[in-house]
């Protein structure tokens, strides 16, 4: 059992959730409430990581983060090391490829609030910020939590993009999914089996939690 890899995966998933929580709430709410030009395009872009092969997506991220890219350049001058094959680069990639998981369920959560209830909040004198805290989030939070749970679980399991952008540096970018692959390559079936089982347990727990929460959403708004 590669505890370093598991710990790294959990850290990666945790940071991804931290960065995506505000994005989930704000983008989910924006896409649920507003109609604007190009909304379809924005929604399609958000969903893109879901359908692109991880290698293709990872390749583009590698190019975008690389030493010759503006972003990679900027990172190098600011922090003195390159963005690709680093934990920070992995977090950034993870934030991007988790966008569909972080935004979609939250958007559905906000969409389930009836328009009149939102309008009533404004008629009660609640500013948009106050309405978010007192009406929108109390009604849509199961959607937001579902989004975060899915993001967490999906980050633990992501393989292709992590390999493309992070490589497999122990303690830096070698996540549990990659560690399992390594064990299989090294004919350590027992190690791979243990780690796989741990991953299955974590994923099963998170998915069960998601289902339980979405059932709650249904009940609250019925």
């Amino acid at each position: 059992m590669d505890w370093t890899a598991l710990f790294l995966s959990l850290q990666l998933a945790g940071w991804t959730v931290v960065f995506l929580l505000p994005v989930s709430v704000l983008m989910g709410r924006l896409l649920a409430y507003r109609r604007f030009r190009g909304k379809g395009l924005v929604e399609a872009l958000v969903m893109l990581p879901l359908v692109l092969p991880p290698t293709v997506f990872g390749f583009y991220l590698l190019v975008a983060f690389g030493r010759n890219s503006p972003l990679g350049d900027l990172w190098q001058t600011l922090f003195g090391h390159q963005l690709v094959f680093s934990f920070q680069g992995l977090v950034l990639a993870s934030v991007i490829f988790n966008l569909p998981f972080a935004i979609q369920p939250a958007q559905r959560g906000f969409e389930s609030i009836p328009v009149e209830v939102r309008e009533a909040a404004r008629c009660c004198g609640l500013s948009p910020m106050a309405a978010l805290w007192r009406v929108d989030l109390p009604l849509a939070w199961p959607g937001v939590v579902t989004a975060m749970v899915l993001t967490f679980a999906h980050t633990l399991g992501e393989f292709g993009i992590v390999l493309m952008v992070g490589g497999s540096i122990p303690g830096e970018t070698k996540t549990i999914a990659i560690a399992i692959y390594d064990r299989v390559q090294g004919f350590d079936d027992k190690g791979a089996a243990t780690m796989s089982a741990v991953l299955v347990a974590i994923s099963l727990f998170t998915i069960a939690l998601t289902y339980w929460l979405s059932a709650r959403v249904g009940r609250r708004l019925s």
């Binding site: 009836p114 009149e116 209830v117 309008e119 009533a120 404004r122 008629c123 609640l126 106050a130």
Partner: peptide, 19 residues
């Protein structure tokens, strides 16, 4: 904006806050 108008509105379906 609506929240700065001191207005009382009763909606057709009441639109109470369910929580």
């Amino acid at each position: 904006p609506t929240h700065r108008r001191r207005v009382g509105v009763v909606f057709q379906n009441y639109a109470l806050f369910p929580h």
